[in-house]
Design a protein around this nucleic acid. Structure first.
Lengths: 275, 275
DNA sequence: AGGCAGTTTCCACTGAGTGGAAGCTGCCTC
DNA sequence: GAGGCAGCTTCCACTCAGTGGAAACTGCCT
């Protein structure tokens, strides 16, 4: 469904462009897992395909895949192909950031969904991407490319722009100095204009996007803060729009998104200083 | 929050009670992950604690934890302790069974939540436990011990009993011949009575539980079938009850749970043969 | 200033992990 | 139904990656 993962890491500064060392059993085991998510998300792979993607010899792959299977991190399907296993899911969902945020935010996201009947997103900043933690959508919602566990760029999504707006300055600089893809004619890719937008978001407390990532959809996003006041996540709703009548932020929707963001922030222990 | 994970595996029949081999780098890496979920779920652990729980020498643990951290499977917090990392979450949520079922079922679960305002659960059978894939709850719902990614016994939960009712016979036999914990006075632990109950569930198509796992709560559960007609999951709602007036399955609730289960089944491609 | 618990680094030894090659299996083609 | 082929599994001698005891380091509490 989604495109390239834009796996640019902000933290991991590798020395001199070293070619991703595959030494060490651990690295190889991880390379095997990564084979399922990079370059494109694959729900099942044959042994050879895994070896290929991971860049490992077949017999080595065979042995290591067996290790994963015996733990439950991979599962062998009836047709002989492999897929990610339940054990991995089970452990993965215990990750504190995701788990805590989700648990606390979900009731508010549900309220937001009920009142708007539109896609509701919850995302955090990870590296230089927006990482989608949660997504609620009804039966009839617009097709969008976001997906739980997926990544989308910061400059072309509502949640992304909010997260970027409140990110540390060096991250903003790093992001804006990188290449900014233009997905649709409406996508803003000029660093200067983006900086102006970020400033606007900081004063307004909401981001309004229209026709910048997916044709026919717009989004409204707001920041979520924790006890310390730091922005830790963003909520948004994505609505269907006509490409002809741009810029029409429904005030009721905007109110609802703000309310949801405030609700979650309050539940996280944030006490707003203003107002 | 939750108790013992009852990590009884149905599939993995170890030879002669061999004492869980820790040989091999892979096994040790997994043991480190397991340290965070067994024996009790820990959201963060010190290096020594990990070494302890995993039963590994400190220096080995140190080295291996570093590997996890460099991949993103573990994260080092500011206080020096370690917790499960975002990468693990990111990969884990891609697990096909969880991902597909969740994506398809979520809209129906939302409907069910909206119409009932009670806890909504989605669970699958894994090994000899009910594994909770999803849980929706409002701001004011009853406290329950279920948790996304958590496991609960089959004989004392609504979803569990449904999953058991439609499980292969040898699994039913295996489960009923094991030890069945009595959590509350109302918990049914007699194999004969449970078998009668399972038969009832198969004819009725719903399970009704009351005061068998958590005091003050009851549940109503129904089976979800896939294209082939096999029961692959169960939905339930958990409602607050008084311990004094037992057995009062709200017909509206029952109808809603059935409808949700049918909706998901239909979305999975199931075409009911009867009615 | 001394003690202590937890963490990090070091390094010589060695058996666990490696991967090329040979052997299987099941499927498609002529 | 013989032959070929792609993908998977098993084997095994070599060797270097991984090991873990011990020593050094850190910061905290007497």
């Amino acid at each position: 469904m989604s495109g390239k993962p834009a796996r640019a890491r902000y933290t991991e500064e590798r020395g001199e462009g070293a070619p991703a060392d595959d030494r060490g059993v651990a690295r190889r085991l991880f390379a095997i897992l990564d084979a399922f998510t990079t370059p494109t998300l694959a729900s099942s792979l044959s042994l050879t395909a895994i070896a290929d993607r991971a860049g490992l010899p077949l017999s080595t792959t065979h042995r290591m895949v067996a290790e994963w299977v015996s733990w439950g991190g991979l599962t062998r399907q009836d047709d002989g192909r492999y897929s990610l296993g339940m054990r991995l899911w089970e452990v993965g969902v215990q990750t504190p950031t995701a788990r805590n945020l989700r648990t606390i935010a979900l009731p508010y996201l549900e309220d937001l969904y009920e009142s708007s009947r539109e896609h509701v997103h919850l995302a955090v900043l990870d590296g230089l991407d927006a990482l989608y933690l949660e997504k609620l959508s009804g039966h009839h919602a617009v097709r969008v490319i976001s997906r739980v566990g997926g990544r989308l760029p910061l400059h072309s999504t509502g949640v992304g722009l909010v997260l970027l707006a409140y990110a540390p300055n060096d991250l903003i600089d790093a992001y804006l100095s990188g290449s900014l893809d233009k997905y649709l004619p409406g996508t803003v890719t000029s660093p200067e204009e983006l900086r102006r937008r970020l400033a606007g978001i900081r004063t307004e407390g909401v981001a309004v996007m229209s026709e910048e990532m997916t044709a026919g959809s717009s989004s409204l996003a707001a920041p979520i803060r924790d006890r310390t006041g730091r922005v830790v996540a963003a909520v948004s709703i994505v609505t269907r729009t006509s490409p002809f009548a741009p810029h029409k932020p429904d005030p009721a929707h905007e109110q609802a998104v703000r309310a949801a963001a405030h609700g979650v922030s309050r539940a996280l222990g944030y006490r707003r200083s203003d107002s």
